[in-house]
Design a binder for these strands. Structure first.
Lengths: 260, 260
DNA sequence: CGCCCCGTTGAAATGAGTCAAGCCTTGTGG
DNA sequence: CCACAAGGCTTGACTCATTTCAACGGGGCG
């Protein structure tokens, strides 16, 4: 549909970061993998700075990010931009926009991005046939909501320094979950302008906060790679606590409510 | 389980605000109503100021609010409190907490509150048998996430005056959807301390913003009732746009992906 | 080679928080 | 039924954290 895009055969899903997250939530059988593969219409690669979702347009796809980074944001009349969330490998671009008539925010790639495309309607149809996929969608939605909730607390009541520390820890945590980070460091794919717009801070102020974390020896940054010298220490400093979903109960778990 | 609570027979669900919201999302059949009634274990009433969910505890229920108001919040070490969201009739108390091991925030009633209790595990089991309920859960989750997203934009980048106007409009919009508001007014069940903690503002500053909206003739408040003199005007002022979910596609919508 | 993006730093202006006090209303217990 | 307490609203003065505006340097990319 667009010059900058190319769609080819979907690669194997087995090593997809989305599947990696998913298999931590439920007993994921080979059969389920086939169900998912069946409704994926292709893989796509887009360039850095390419818009994926634009406000006001209809968007009805779940794009499962295989590699690369993007941001979900809204720009106001005043020209200010607020980023809701950063999108990492294993995340889904079409959430929650696919549930609404017209998109209320935009998504843009901040690096080259590779993802698998699944039409929303196909996914919904699959949910009717294989209810575990509906639950999966709910679980992802709950996780997303919880991340948003933390961002509300950040921008509403936490100090800029805490916010920044927490954001770095959140990104590290999420990247580690899909194998994109080491135990104590990760490649930071976002400019300070992006970080500022996530945290509701101006670029100069954000910059000063970065400098402060550095001066306090809590982080060091060399060539876009963030390293935590003492992970427990920085977690203590900003009271970071990772979010952990419970697993999705399997179909036959206890009793059942079926009528005779 | 607690002195202040009393559980009695679930009343009819037909007039439940939750069902009212739900029936706007899908073709809700009498049969579905029975499915839902079957897994509801009772109704409960709690007093104003009663804690429903407390941080760190496990909570595995969906509480469908029938009447009254509550808030979902987190208090920080500094003593500051951030409210994530206000809970109105038709909302679900156990979201997203039931998806996590231990609750990451608290919920407290700010008025006397009546709700129907549905054990989370029962609901999940129902999803396996009747997949439309799984989709329903996803839809609710998406809506919740979208509201959170707007709050992030509010606290991150909007002026205090806009935030306040938007919050009042959001509450009005959500109350109207369940028949708890007139076309241009509603009972405001929240103190200024609560409003401040939703918007990330101090009470004195919030108070000044209320005064300003009043002075500008955008709202009037008499005896806890907020009245919009000119609804389009205040919506224009803060660029408020109601969120509208698409309907859940029915089971047989087009084609199907079943294999032979 | 030059442009543009990105990071960095400084100085000034201002918006919002904090602290403090007073008043009104509501609820409650004597 | 009254009195007092507590919660909620309102206002003022002061402080300071954060934004805004501005300028500069480095480095990668075309």
């Amino acid at each position: 549909m667009n010059a900058a895009t190319q769609t080819d055969d979907p690669g194997s899903l087995a090593d997809h970061p989305f599947v990696m997250r998913l298999s931590r939530l439920m007993a994921f059988r080979a059969e389920d993998l086939r169900h998912l593969e069946r409704i994926i219409v292709g893989d796509q690669m887009v360039k850095k700075r390419k818009d994926l979702v634009v406000v006001g347009n209809e968007f009805r796809n779940l794009c499962l990010v295989r590699d690369g980074y993007a941001i979900r944001y809204k720009v106001l009349r005043s020209g200010k931009r607020q980023i809701l969330n950063v999108i990492l490998p294993g995340d889904v671009v079409g959430f929650p926009v696919s549930f609404f008539d017209r998109s209320i925010y935009s998504v843009v790639a901040v690096s080259d991005l590779a993802f698998s495309i699944c039409p929303f309607d196909s996914y919904v149809r699959l949910c009717y046939e294989q209810p575990q996929f509906g639950l999966l969608l709910s679980w992802f939605a709950a996780y997303e909501a919880a991340i948003y909730a933390e961002h509300i607390v950040d921008t509403g009541r936490r100090t800029p320094l805490e916010r920044l520390a927490r954001l770095l820890l959140e990104i590290h945590w999420r990247l580690e979950a899909v194998g994109y980070a080491t135990a104590s460091s990760f490649e930071l794919p976002f400019s300070q302008e992006v970080l500022g717009d996530v945290l509701g801070l101006s670029v100069p102020h954000l910059n000063r906060m970065v400098a402060r974390l550095r001066a306090d020896g809590l982080i060091s940054i060399v060539e876009r790679r963030v390293e935590f010298a003492d992970l427990p220490a920085i977690r203590r400093f900003c009271h970071f606590q990772p979010l952990d979903l419970v697993r999705i109960p399997p179909r036959d778990s206890a009793g059942g409510t079926s009528q005779p």
